[in-house]
Design a protein around this nucleic acid. Structure first.
Lengths: 236, 236
DNA sequence: CAAACAAAGATTGTTAACAATTATTCCTTG
DNA sequence: CAAGGAATAATTGTTAACAATCTTTGTTTG
């Protein structure tokens, strides 16, 4: 698995939280491969905690869709297939439509100001900055849309797929360097719709999550790529 | 808290799973009041397990929105306000629209058959049967819609609010005994839409989740009722 | 030599004890 | 007598050991 021998954490907040962050980073960076079996004791030693917090982190990551838990078998890194991109994509659209509807009538000047800050940062980001920077701004912007929607359960649902969206966006950006330049215009349009106060009862796809969203899956090309096409997800 | 001294579980499946079910029942039945502090040791003794599974169950219940976890403070039963009904209601509509779109083109004969079975049971349920029976059939039906949608993340999002929908439906049925009779016609209509194969790109509210859904919140009446209006949810 | 079975090893599920933090009680003090 | 604070109690966070289950390995047998 190629783990560092010992990792020291920043400061106090919940031990399992640090473990979650560490594991998520390991999965996103590819330090642990798809389908790999994450062993509690091994991780506990490597991260310098006991198995308790590891198990808590596993539950959290399972909720975020990064690993799969099987009783008496343990945790396995989720194998992402094209189907998973479709799922995240379509679910995100459904959630964001609701978010836009609500945000349009509830957005506050404070949130709008923060939105403009993010837009400004998007406009000035260097074209050869790392992809992660543009992705972070993208997610920051949409976080604000959900925050403006003022809907606890919707926010939680967004957080559920947020990390996955982040992961997929990073992958996309490796092959579509136009991401950075496209980002600003798309998001400014979203802001304008919100400021106008009426995204329409049914906001169109393009007005909410097109350019910045995941690439629309193409059925024609079935080769794995970075997203594996093999490996069944539910071998039961 | 009025807990039984000792509860014996059915059989083998994960200990924390049984704890989750037991706690959810206790909350739904009102055996533990809103805002109440659930103590790990106390529950562990009452349920005959140690604190480990209790903590796991807490995480699960927190994900389902039934309790709130605060570090070094513990678990508190969520205080439900009118706002929470609105949230579950609106989020459910968003999810179910996506589910209907997908189910319309993916539903299998096997699922359709099970749907008809549920409809049949709905038609023949006794008018003075306990409300929980009608609610169970209602949820069974919608489970099938989501199953037909064939979308893992959508299914998970549905499960996230499913228990809350169940809870709210039971509350509603106490004041609206017409629920049972209304149920059949509404759901048969949903089935027909799916069989027709096209719920429209934008299924109307009435074709998916009207009669069986939660009561549309009325802004006029702000008195608590069973759903408390007091008790802040985020006292941070 | 392949398949089935048994034993050993590894891993997860659960428990009980210890440490850190928070809540409560009771005393002091103005 | 009210307000503030220190000591005590209660509760959660974490750990390490034990039990149950699964996987693997090696052997036997047809």
């Amino acid at each position: 698995m190629a783990l560092p021998d010992q990792i020291t954490f920043a400061s106090s907040p919940a031990l399992s939280r640090n473990v979650v962050d560490a594991l998520r980073a390991m999965i996103a960076s590819g330090a642990v491969g798809e389908g790999e079996h994450l062993k509690e004791s091994e991780l506990a030693d490597a991260l310098g905690v006991s198995r308790g917090p590891i198990r808590e982190a596993f539950q959290q990551l399972e909720n975020e869709g990064f690993i799969e838990l099987r009783r008496h078998r343990g945790a396995f890194v989720t194998t992402l297939r094209r189907r998973d991109i479709e799922e995240v994509y379509s679910l995100r659209i459904a959630l964001e439509q609701l978010a836009m509807e609500r945000a349009a009538t509830r957005i506050t000047p404070a949130i709008l100001a923060r939105m403009n800050e993010v837009l400004d940062a998007m406009q000035h980001v260097s074209p050869d900055a790392p992809a992660s920077e543009a992705v972070a701004l993208d997610l920051d912007f949409h976080d604000l849309v959900y925050e403006a929607a003022d809907h606890d359960r919707l926010m939680r649902s967004w957080r559920y797929i947020r990390s996955q969206v982040s992961f997929f966006l990073q992958v996309r950006n490796r092959s579509h360097p136009d991401f950075v330049s496209v980002g600003y215009a798309e998001h400014r349009q979203i802001r304008d719709v919100l400021v106008a106060g009426d995204p329409g009862r049914r906001p169109t796809r393009s007005s909410t999550t097109s350019g910045d969203a995941l690439p629309a899956p193409r059925r024609s090309r079935e080769r794995p790529g970075l997203i594996a096409a093999s490996g069944r997800r539910d071998p039961a």
